[in-house]
């Protein structure tokens, strides 16, 4: 499949080794509150679906084996 959308389930791996303790809508709501965004009830499913898609993408990107010293692609130049 060209673009994976992995449905997260309770205690599933949320990409990069992070473990999910709550369902995604609760997780998203809690994170959003932390950064000062209000997620209205009718938006939860949509935001949650996108967060799952990002988590899935991040998890697959994390499977690329890189050297410990592999640098991120920054654009800052001193």
């Amino acid at each position: 499949m060209a673009f994976a959308h992995v449905k997260l389930t309770s205690r599933s791996n949320l990409g990069c080794g992070m473990q999910q303790k709550h369902d995604v809508s609760q997780l998203v709501e809690g994170l959003a509150e932390t950064v000062g965004i209000t997620v209205r009830p009718q938006w939860r499913d949509g935001v949650g679906a996108h967060f799952e898609a990002i988590a899935s993408a991040a998890a697959e990107a994390a499977t690329l084996t890189l050297d410990e010293a592999a640098e991120p692609a920054w654009h800052f130049e001193a």
């Binding site: 959003a32 965004i37 988590a55 692609a73």
Partner: peptide, 15 residues
């Protein structure tokens, strides 16, 4: 909104 919640570890690995 979903993007604003991405952990930095995911973004760092992507970079």
């Amino acid at each position: 909104i979903a993007g604003s919640l991405v952990p930095s570890a995911w973004a760092m690995q992507a970079q």
